[in-house]
Amino acid sequence: MKVRLTLNGEPATLTCAPWEFLTEALRRHGLIGTKRGCETGDCGACSVLLDGEEVASCILLAAQADGHAVTTVEGLGGFERPHPIQEAFVDATAVQCGYCTPGMVIATQALLAQNPAPTERDARECLAGHLCRCTGYVKPIAAVLQAAERCRAGDVAKTGGRS
């Protein structure tokens, strides 16, 4: 079946089987930044934005995304223009093995779009669905807060995430 959606700001058509979840469809489309960690929606590695809201793409049928806007980590920034959230994760040394990082970056984008001045508690809630065995969350929490500061300073949270 064909799934038509807006993918990272551009119209796209994904050819999928009815049983296929969005993670697989995206990865097959070359968007490997969306990771597979549990396939039950419990680890956060596969998070993407669906119409601006964070969702677990491993438990969302690709077909469910038909007609919606999906943003993956690749949609936020690239080497030539990293998103301030991505820069904040790097500068806070919040990236260790990096497998959880795209999901955390997506979660941060969703948070900051709603709440540009999060508290530490907000940052913790934002990352609660993102398991990480490397960092102990201390530096990712700091990265979320740092990202908020940078986005406020540059007011780019709105423009950075095309969705």
């Binding site: 929606g41 956060g44 998070s47 809201e53 964070e54 969702v55 677990a56 979660a107 809630e125 669905g129």
Partner: peptide
Amino acid sequence: FAVVALQNR
């Protein structure tokens, strides 16, 4: 159940 992505869906 404190997972934002699940609360959203």
